[in-house]
Amino acid sequence: FTDRESLEGVMQVFEDDVHKEIDLASLMVKITDEEEINNPNTVKVIVDNRDFALYFSRSPIPYPRAKNEDTVYYKHKGIYAFRKSALMDFQRLPMLQLEATEKIEAIRYLEYGKKIKMVETNVQGIEIDTPEDLKKAQKAWK
């Protein structure tokens, strides 16, 4: 439930990575709906100034302490591209505390110092995180 252009953008990350510093690439999309921002089934991501993932959470991140700030939220779309070594590392590296707490597998990579490059897309698509989401996806597929 995403578009070809977004997937090509994720793959382009590795083409552009001449120093081979990126372990994974994934998609993120801006979200503005308060219900979705506060929904624990929606994984949020924050990035640095080069769009490398800093953290993923089921909580709203960043937290808008000053309510007059124009806070931008990104939803992590569960689409990944891996270097082979990063994929192999996942099964051999044990789960640590943050991943166990949030129940977000991408955190395992961050906890072990792996670099995840995020690519922004405008395509919301359909995420399937709950039985209700599956019903929506099946309806959309028809």
Rank of each mutant, 00 (worst) to 15 (best):
F1T: 14
T2W: 01
D3W: 00
E8P: 00
E8D: 10
D16T: 09
V18M: 07
V18C: 07
H19A: 12
E21I: 14
E21Y: 00
L24F: 15
A25T: 08
I31H: 07
D33H: 03
E34Q: 12
E34C: 02
E35Q: 13
E36I: 07
E36T: 13
E36C: 01
I37L: 03
I37G: 07
P40Q: 01
P40W: 01
P40R: 04
P40G: 03
N41Q: 11
N41F: 14
V45M: 10
V47N: 03
N49W: 04
D51V: 00
A53T: 13
A53E: 05
L54A: 05
S57A: 13
S59R: 15
S59F: 09
P60N: 05
Y63I: 15
Y63D: 11
A66N: 15
K67T: 12
K67R: 10
D70P: 00
D70I: 07
T71H: 05
Y73W: 14
Y74T: 11
K75G: 00
H76P: 02
I79M: 05
I79C: 05
A81G: 12
A81H: 02
R83P: 07
R83Y: 05
A86C: 12
M88H: 03
M88A: 11
Q91S: 12
Q91T: 11
P94K: 07
P94R: 06
M95K: 15
L98S: 10
A100T: 05
A100R: 15
T101F: 07
K103M: 06
K103N: 13
I104G: 03
I104F: 01
E105G: 08
R108L: 11
R108S: 10
Y109N: 07
L110I: 13
K117E: 04
V119H: 06
E120K: 13
T121P: 00
N122C: 04
V123H: 08
Q124V: 08
I126N: 00
E127A: 12
I128R: 02
D129C: 09
D129W: 05
T130Q: 09
P131T: 10
E132V: 10
K136V: 10
A137R: 02
Q138I: 13
A140V: 10
W141K: 14
